[in-house]
Write a protein that binds this DNA or RNA. Structure first.
Length: 490
RNA sequence: CGGGGUGUAGCGUAGCCCGGUAUCGCGCCACAUUUGGGAUGUGGAGGUCGUAGGUUCGAAUCCUGCCACCCCGACCA
């Protein structure tokens, strides 16, 4: 590990890249566009998985697993779906290698697959092909299934966590008897995502729906949560789709209703990915490193001993172990770092880089005074407190940090969400004060595309429960009934 | 996939224009002194110069192809 991080004010992208690698979250792999998620980064993902998985189970879903490979023919059944993903699919064409006799391993041309297989970019098709066999009657519905999986989208330009050719995610796929029930499901899962983002990631999000241009290929309606990063760019953090009967029709999935009528099944799908780790980094971290919310930090408290000799260290360890035990009894994860090989200052910097929310230092002075030095990562404030009831104090402090990080991010978003009433003002805001820009839009795809071409800003979403307000489109001057949220985005 | 840039020890770099077997810092190893914010000293180890060809007596250096990463564009979670 080397000293210093590029300041995020000097070069935000470089700051992000350095942070991901220096904090030991991930690194580039030998495969273009693919990353290695290192143990520390993966443990954040595991925290996310655990919280989300519980939320999915609590809302009635079960996990299952579908194949990585999808027959090409499945893929072409839903027209807009194919169109959306066709340009970024990895295709398996052969199933065997051979030695060419000169010591090289080559593809065995005799082992060509009769039907090529697509490496899943998402699983709607294979899942709806499967659901056909599961559903005959309204009694078989709803089906509420989630899978944790990897997917591949052959991206041209990749960035660690934010956009990689292969990524980890969860995809929920549900089947319902009625339109209302499916819409309700899509909205429910959006709320689960928003809840997770705000209460676990401490990242405020805007709940909204996508415009037709930004909609998932094959969806009737795409709901999304949008977050604002510290550089003023927006990031789509999760999506939930109402798929209508599109996939049921494509895969001929019908059920007999209570009334004895045959109808196509209604569907939803929803997902969040390891991209959330990128969001987490960019939402909170600073020039000293990661700032992790206590609820997702792999380690919540680190204890660093400061000693002059073995005898002193032994006494400090005793105090540290007692504190560790009392914290663990409160379900707080603790690490006691008694390595002799690094000095305290080094450890302080290291744990700041890694975003550990609370650091406790115990030294000779503290032994005598019955105290410990507590440092919180988010504000970098330090104070010396009594070791009496320290577990309770730290437990409260963790809650406070979780809340403080959220409040800070919310204040940032509020400050950086502005209204524009003319195209000039709109462009000026985007260039001079990046963030969300709330503006009137005439509702047409043409206008949206033109604005995107000219400003690189896209409509992130039409916020749910949006305030209705008469106005005129910033580009065309045509009448508009509500503002929508624009931003330059990741 | 188009334009620009970069690739030299684990990391960051000098050397490249003007060809002669590689510089410095961090890190690493040993020992000593240290330990309340990234310790200091002394000694030491570590290199197919991204990769494959070519030019040359000789290539990190010149030429060509390829690969990877970064930035900008098109595309996208």
């Amino acid at each position: 590990m080397s000293k210093g991080l590029t300041s995020k004010n000097d070069d935000y992208s470089q700051w992000y890249n350095e942070l991901v690698t220096k904090a030991d979250l991930a690194e580039h792999s030998a495969v273009r566009g693919c990353m290695v998620i290192k143990p520390y980064g993966y443990s954040i993902w595991e925290k996310m998985q655990a919280a989300l998985d519980k939320m999915f189970k609590d809302t009635g879903h079960s996990n299952a697993y579908f194949p990585l490979f999808i027959p090409k023919s499945f893929f072409s059944k839903e027209a807009s779906h194919v169109e959306g993903f066709a340009t970024e699919c990895a295709v398996v064409t052969h199933y065997r290698l051979k030695n060419d006799g000169k010591g090289n391993i080559i593809v065995d041309e005799d082992a060509k697959l009769e039907e090529e297989l697509i490496v899943r970019p998402t699983s709607e098709t294979i899942i709806w092909n499967t659901y056909k066999g599961w559903i005959q009657s309204y009694r078989d519905l709803p089906i509420l299934v989630n899978q944790w999986a990897n997917v591949v989208r052959w991206e041209m330009r990749t960035r660690l966590f934010l956009r990689t050719a292969e990524f980890l995610w969860q995809e929920g796929h549900t089947a319902h008897a009625t339109r209302e029930e499916a819409v309700e499901e899509a909205e429910r899962m959006l709320e689960v995502y928003a809840d997770f983002a705000e209460n676990f990631m401490a990242m405020p999000v805007v709940r909204g729906v996508k415009t037709p241009n930004e909609r998932f290929a094959g969806a009737i309606e795409t709901y999304c949560i949008e977050a604002l990063m510290q550089d003023g760019k927006a990031l789509q953090a999760g999506t939930s789709h109402f798929l209508g009967q599109n996939f049921a029709k494509a895969f001929d999935v019908k059920f007999t209703s209570k009334e004895g009528k045959l109808d196509h099944v209604w569907a939803t799908s929803w997902g969040v990915s390891t991209r959330l780790i990128g969001a987490l980094i960019m939402a909170h971290s600073d020039d000293s490193g990661l700032v992790l919310p206590p609820k997702l930090s792999p380690i919540q408290v680190v204890i660093v001993p400061i000693y002059r000799n073995d005898e002193e260290k032994a006494k400090i360890s005793e105090a540290a172990n007692a504190l560790s035990a009392s914290l663990r009894a409160r379900n707080i994860s603790v690490k006691y770092d008694d390595r002799d090989t690094q000095r305290p200052g080094f450890k302080f910097a290291e744990y700041e880089l890694k975003g550990i929310p609370v650091r406790v230092a115990i030294g000779g002075r503290d032994l005598e005074n019955g105290t410990a030095e507590i440092a919180r990562r988010d504000t970098r404030e330090k104070q010396t407190v009594s070791r009496e009831n320290l577990d309770l104090y730290i437990s409260d402090l963790l809650d406070e940090i979780q809340q403080a990080i959220y409040n800070k991010a919310l204040a940032f978003r509020t400050e950086n969400t502005r209204e524009a009433d003319s195209y000039e003002e709109f462009k000026r805001l985007l260039d001079e004060q990046p963030g969300f820009v709330s503006a009137h839009w005439d509702g047409t795809g043409e206008t949206e595309k033109k604005i995107k071409e000219e400003t690189k800003a896209t409509i992130r979403c039409i916020p749910l429960n949006n305030r209705q307000e008469e106005g005129t489109c910033i580009l065309t001057g045509n009448p508009s009934k509500q503002r929508v949220l624009f931003a330059r985005a990741y």
